[in-house]
């Protein structure tokens, strides 16, 4: 199982300290929620966990089966859904999925594609000839989630995953997160949603 360890981690931007001396451990097999007020550093915490950002102080390590994952080895094992992450606006849903999943060595058959879209509450036939740039924010969010679900990632990093989703969509995210945790995945979600916080097994407070 995977594990993300924050050792005495501090982060500041242009001299403004976001947080300091954080010592947290995120383990696989359970859902961990990162909670706190706006600006408390929830998204920064996720970016540090994903090694998309280097901490100003301390060290963040990502381990799987006792081995520290870095660079390409790490990115092949993690997937991320954040509000600022965008899909290619001039590619269709299928083309976006084929591209991102293809880079992970996952090839979707037509049946896989239909099943994957159904899993996130989208209908493939409606999206066939439409570019992602024409989708609503909720549809884009579902498509990003589809990418995550099919990627085979062992580390799920979700920033406000229920944002822009209806009640059924939010429930689907929590259901899938629970399944992933049961498979042993590390599921880390940054949230302000009380329902997502309540669904988590562990809570990291950024207050």
């Amino acid at each position: 199982m995977g594990k993300i360890t924050f050792q005495d981690v501090g982060q500041s931007f242009q001299g403004r300290s976001i947080f300091s001396h954080r010592n947290d451990v995120v383990e696989g097999g359970c859902i961990t929620a990162v909670c706190g007020a706006n600006g408390s550093g929830k998204s920064t915490f996720l970016r540090l966990a994903a090694h998309l950002l280097l901490p100003t102080e301390g060290h963040v390590s990502v381990r799987e089966a006792g081995e520290e994952l870095r660079r390409e080895a790490l990115f092949r094992r993690l997937s991320l859904v954040t509000p600022e992450m965008r899909l290619y606006p001039r590619l269709s849903a299928r083309e976006n999925l084929d591209f991102f999943l293809g880079l992970r060595g996952v090839r979707l058959t037509d049946e896989d594609y239909e099943a994957l879209l159904a899993r996130v509450g989208l209908r493939g036939s409606e999206l066939r000839d439409t570019w992602a740039g024409a989708y609503s924010t909720g549809m884009c969010q579902r498509l990003k989630l589809a990418c995550l679900f099919a990627s085979g990632a062992a580390f799920w990093l979700l920033d406000e995953p229920g944002a822009n989703l209806d009640a059924e969509g939010s429930a689907m995210v929590l259901r899938e997160a629970r399944r992933a945790a049961e498979r042993g995945c590390v599921v880390l979600l940054a949230t302000n949603d009380p329902r997502e916080e309540a669904a988590a097994d562990e809570v990291i407070s950024m207050a």
Partner: peptide, 12 residues
């Protein structure tokens, strides 16, 4: 276009 983050996560 905001696609760099996704490319960074998925592409080597």
């Amino acid at each position: 276009s905001g696609t760099l983050l996704a490319l960074r996560v998925y592409g080597s």
